[in-house]
Nucleic acid binder design. Structure first.
Length: 429
RNA sequence: GUCCCGUUCGUCUAGUCUGGUCCAGGACACAGGAUUUUCAUUCCUGCAACAUGGGUUCGAAUCCCAUACGGGACGCCA
């Protein structure tokens, strides 16, 4: 029976590297129909913060990772906060005392290491041997247990079968194997996954790096499934050319032996590309729902907002830019981009606007197709390009040169609003 | 410094275990082009890598060794 755990320390942040570690644990548990446990390693009480845990819990949920045992869901191996497991740590310390594996020095309790090579049986790296040279502290002089001790005790007590964690822990594993043996407990399989390196510069990604926190992506309106998909592919691949994958597909294919051994550099451009792919392909209904959540002033006209969003989905790369992308649909006081105007004004824009305005006001077939035909006809009559009408009129209607399909935009805005804006442009600019 | 892990296009990776099908495939990025409504989208094309040196072999990206480089760990942090 596979039992894996993600064991973060509540620091107030949810690091992208931690999220990937959690994800690989979760994927492996789901792939093997095992149990995924969330355990909060809050032994360092000086740094512990109340809300710090909820940052992790909500980040996990946002990314779509559920846990079978842990905070808020419970489980028969609890409690799942290390700060509440003192009795258990005391019992395990007694085991070591009885077997004469520990001694006291300067008020701290040290564990005696064997100085024999320890086998770290790693599903990703193979069989790694390492000698632990020095005895190490397992209880501080203030009486609190340290990471190495509680981590192993809980893995034993919670019957963890596979320890999946970052490669930065590989050197710690010789300490941990010594402890497992000292408790007379079976040593779990290990899987040390590669680290995520900074986008620029050297070293692993740290909390201070731009884009290092899951919260950052959430605030920037990334789609969680896009970030999750990208993270899956950092150190793992389905071995064919698939990249955009449903989580069900990934669960089905994921295995620890297919995880890479070398570290990966985080590439925000590829993440942005994936996010755009998810935005464009998400079901319209969900797109509309999410879009309206992010539009502060669509004025209560839900039908109009739906239509605006519908024609914008194919052009949008991220929800972060949504408001800027569509604001002029709802706001009559939109700004004109001066730079765009200077390019336009050489091509008689006011003349084009007035010509198309006249047609729009009088046309019978006010539809995409009708408009397109009208513009083509006008362009032929005046021996200019259709683009001359489109550029000038789009600018008059939106103040921009970028936007959704021109004809769709006019239909959605409606004849009345379009005429009003065009007249205003003719009298103003 | 000591110990551990790693090294395929700028980046993420496939191929390495089971050597020949790889003058190395895909994606992002970048550059050009086509469609379109300028931008964007979409499509096409291009650019670009087996760290180096030895060895084993008829044959090595794939196996072995060394070197170099990168990463990590060496806390009464986790």
């Amino acid at each position: 029976m596979v039992r894996v755990r993600f064991a973060p320390s509540p620091t107030g942040f949810f690091h992208i590297g931690g999220a990937r570690t959690a994800l690989f644990n979760w994927l492996y548990a789901r792939h093997m129909s095992g149990t995924f446990i969330l355990r909060i390693e809050d032994t360092d009480r000086e740094r512990h913060m109340e809300e710090a845990t909820s940052v992790i819990l909500s980040g996990m949920r946002w990314l779509g990772m559920d846990w079978d045992e842990g905070p808020e869901v419970g489980g028969k191996y609890g409690p799942y906060f290390q700060s509440q497991r003192d009795d258990i740590y005391g019992e395990y310390l007694e085991i070591l005392r009885r077997n004469d594996k520990v001694y006291e020095q300067d008020g701290a309790i040290y564990f005696r290491v064997s100085r024999e090579p320890q086998l770290i049986d790693d599903l990703i790296r193979g069989q790694v041997y390492r000698v632990e040279e020095k005895d190490f502290v397992i209880f501080r002089s203030n009486g609190t247990p340290v990471f190495h001790f509680v981590n192993v005790v809980d893995d034993v007590a919670m019957e963890i079968s596979h320890v999946i964690r970052g490669e930065d822990h590989l050197s710690n594993s010789s300490k941990h194997v010594e402890l497992f043996k000292a408790f007379g407990a079976p040593v779990p399989k290990f899987a040390h996954i590669p680290l995520i390196l900074k986008t620029n510069g050297s070293g692993k990604m740290s909390k201070r790096d731009v884009g290092a926190l899951v919260e950052d992506y959430r605030k920037s309106r990334f789609l969680p499934e896009a970030l999750r998909n990208y993270l899956c592919l950092l150190g793992w691949s389905p071995k064919d050319d698939r990249e955009i994958m449903s989580i069900e597909e990934v669960i089905q294919l994921f295995d620890l032996c297919d995880v890479n051994r070398n570290n990966a550099r985080f590439d925000d451009k590829k993440l942005a590309y994936m996010n755009a792919a998810y935005v464009k392909s998400m079901p319209l209904e969900r797109f509309l729902e999410k879009g309206k959540d992010l539009l502060p002033n669509f004025g209560g006209d839900e039908h109009y907002a739906d239509q605006v969003l519908t024609i914008c989905q194919e052009k949008l790369r991220s929800f972060e830019e949504l408001n800027h992308f569509v604001s002029y649909f709802f706001d009559e006081e939109f700004e004109y981009e001066e730079r765009a105007w200077s390019d336009l004004k050489k091509r008689d824009p006011l003349l084009r606007i007035s010509e198309l305005l006249e047609v729009i006001e009088n046309m019978e077939d006010f539809s995409e197709q009708g408009l397109e035909e009208a513009v083509v006809k006008l362009a032929e009559e005046h021996a200019v390009k259709t683009g001359d009408y489109i550029h000038a009129v789009r600018f008059a209607l939106s103040g921009r040169t970028v936007g959704p399909s021109f004809y769709k935009m006019i239909v959605v805005m409606g004849r009345e609003r379009v005429a009003r804006r065009l007249k205003r442009a003719l009298s103003g600019k």
